[in-house]
């Protein structure tokens, strides 16, 4: 129904780029690359270093947007995209994700990548929990209900 192409090489390359970005953010700015914290810091009341976080987000939005435009002319289907969730589910899901990552102090990037790379016990536990819960949720919504 929503089959997607298995892309091991592209996904590995993408993962290495994400890891390089996390390494550079630590080496230059001394920060964990956690999207939850970065987003939280640009919402009022602003964090003292909000401008640096806003610059990170601007790059994370604009650079892929421009890259996708260039890829358009080269490959037929540059960026595969399908959002299976209906509108009300997206709204409820967005609220739950925002609430969860704020309360749990992190998401896939902050806990799943940077936290585990530091061998933080909190991040290892949080990542284990959200990976299992996500798998259970997908199973229940796709195969049970």
């Amino acid at each position: 129904m929503f089959e997607t192409e298995f892309t091991p090489l592209a996904s590995l390359a993408g993962g290495i780029m994400i890891g390089l970005a996390a390494t550079l953010l630590m080496a230059l700015h001394g920060r964990i690359m956690g999207l939850t914290g970065i987003i939280n810091g640009v919402l009022p009341p602003l964090s003292p270093d909000w401008a640096m976080r806003a610059a990170f987000l601007a790059g994370a939005i604009l650079v892929p947007g421009v890259a996708a435009l260039f890829m358009q002319g080269i490959v037929e289907n540059p960026v595969a995209f399908a959002s299976p969730a209906a509108l009300p589910v997206l709204v409820i899901g967005g609220l739950i994700v925002g609430l969860g990552v704020k309360i749990g102090s992190g998401c896939t990037s902050g806990h799943g990548i940077c936290g585990i790379a530091r061998l933080s016990p909190r991040s290892i536990v949080a990542t284990g929990v959200f990976m299992v819960v996500t798998a259970a949720t997908v199973y229940l919504t796709r195969h049970v209900f």
């Binding site: 899901g93 739950i96 994700v97 969860g100 102090s105 536990v125 819960v133 919504t141």
Partner: peptide, 21 residues
């Protein structure tokens, strides 16, 4: 808070396929 937050995140990620990053 850590476990509850991660659980909520997992439910939201599972029903939408979107995480913040």
């Amino acid at each position: 808070r850590l476990i509850g937050g991660a659980t909520l995140f997992g439910i939201g990620w599972g029903i939408t396929g979107f995480c913040p990053g």
